[in-house]
Nucleic acid binder design. Sequence first.
DNA 1: GAACAGGCAACTC
DNA 2: GAGTTGCCTGTT
Length: 275
Amino acid sequence: MYKVFELCREKDLSPYKTFECGQCFRWNDDGTGAYIGVASGRAARVFLSGGNTMIECEEEDLGFWHNYLDMDTNYTAARESIMIGDYLTECAEYGEGIRILRQDYWEALCSFIISQCNNIPRIKSIIEKLCALFGEEMETPWGVKYTFPTASRVALLEEPELAPLRSGYRAAYIINAARAVASGEIDLEYAATLDGNEARKYLKNLNGVGDKVANCAVLFGLHRMNAFPVDVWIKRALKEHMPQGFDASSLGEYAGLAQQYMFFHAREQAAALKN
DNA sequence: GAACAGGCAACTC
DNA sequence: GAGTTGCCTGTT
């Protein structure tokens, strides 16, 4: 039984900012500014109403979504902790309402393996095909959706079976990672007990996982908020705003949140210039 | 049609 | 250890 529940004020969770800041690929605007997504075999719709952020979901899943949306973390305090200097303060103010989701470990790892050298629409398209082909079908109030296939499921596939995804050279990485995770050779539950830096090194044992992908999996999957993925957007932003050099560890335990604010800020500025 | 896109790995010096 | 190159594919 799907019902609507009030989550918080918009400033504590902006659906647009949270779902469009690059951390996730399975939440989509339904055309009205409401976001529909699937995670861990559950579906939900997150939207604004009268300055509040609302969620429509199964009543028994409310606890799951509460955790997924990281509602127990105090983002006001976290945000203030990384407001160091004019630039970061501007990014943090601009990004108010972003929350770092607690995504499934395997889904985050696999998604960011796919993300390498790819743009967002294409990443989303590859992931949706992966789910439609190998995930499980779900009936939702918003139509048929598919779960993200488990590592065990993907581990059974052979590379040619991934050809319809058009994921190119990443297909081998996906299957290799799935097999390592399914066999326990790479234990994501164990990785989740490590600190961010150790977890990043551990995941880099996987072929096709370097610093960037590992850091994304650590931040967005394992929820180690001090992980600081550096992609081309962050590289550009650092070059422009921190020409004297920059050490992410100086930002402390919420460095990864600062990264998301910087990323969102850079992307939105670029989009504004285009229009 | 070449260059590039939210990297990685293997190779060179 | 810093720099270069190939890798699949889709878009510009």
